[in-house]
Design a protein around this nucleic acid. Structure first.
Length: 222
DNA sequence: GAGTGATCATTA
DNA sequence: TAATGATCACTC
């Protein structure tokens, strides 16, 4: 029988990984590190999930459902600055009618995030990339206010069928961008005239300016 | 196709 | 050069 980890267990395990290279971690897990990420874009996240015992699989839930903790690896440069925005979850299309922000998958995933920075300078071989110090983030009241405002703006436009007005520039902390195998993938949606149509699946992403603040601030995870 | 894990690569 | 839009692998 395997006991589910407590939050303290999880944080302790994450701290133990600090300073390890991905090559060392993969060796310990008897796993492989790809030479290139081009065809293995999610591999590093999966390695960390393996190392920390994430259980949610591909369900639309936080990685540790019993703790409400979402695990995110984030590539950072030598100064610790995030190099990419962070995918959070799929945008429900067509929208979930009557759902509040607090009931959304987005909210549940953002409520507690264990960020694991990965030193990922492009010249550094994947196996030589170094796991950084984890930090557990819970959005402040001010953060929640902005996140909710972003969500409501998106939600309003989606409800009005006005997906066409949403692009990656909209939103302060969040943005909506394509999230699909390729640009011909389609999902159902209702357009502004009320007709059923098809559109490219989208995802919610957290902007790098937000994760930069998170990584550079001190908190419980440190 | 829909969800997860993300990074790639062209453009502004 | 940062950011947006596009893409890759995998599971079910």
């Amino acid at each position: 029988m395997s006991l589910l980890p407590t939050l303290d267990d999880l944080l302790a395990r994450a701290h133990c990984l600090t300073g390890l290279t991905l090559g060392q971690l993969a060796f310990d897990l008897q796993a492989q590190v790809p030479q290139q990420l081009l065809r293995h874009k999610g591999r590093i996240g999966q390695l960390l999930e393996m190392a920390l015992g994430a259980t949610a699989g591909n369900a639309a839930e936080p990685d540790f459902p019993h703790l409400g903790v979402e695990l995110k690896t984030i590539p950072v440069n030598a100064h610790g600055k995030p190099l990419e925005s962070t995918y959070i979850t799929t945008v429900p299309l067509p929208p979930m009618l009557g759902q509040t922000f607090e009931q959304s998958v987005l909210y549940r995933k953002l409520a507690k995030v264990l960020w694991v920075p990965i030193l990922a300078e492009p010249h550094l071989a994947i196996a030589d990339r170094v796991i950084g110090r984890p930090s557990l983030w819970e959005p402040s009241q001010a953060d929640w206010h902005i996140l909710k405002q972003d969500w409501e703006e998106f939600q309003t436009r989606i409800m009005l069928g006005d997906l066409a007005s949403i692009d990656g520039r909209l939103g302060d902390y969040l943005q909506i961008r394509p999230k699909a195998a390729h640009s011909r993938v389609l999902t159902r949606h209702i357009d502004a005239d009320g007709y059923q149509g098809q559109t490219l699946p989208r995802g919610y992403y957290l902007r790098a300016k937000v994760t930069t603040t998170i990584i550079f601030s001190r908190n419980k995870g440190q």
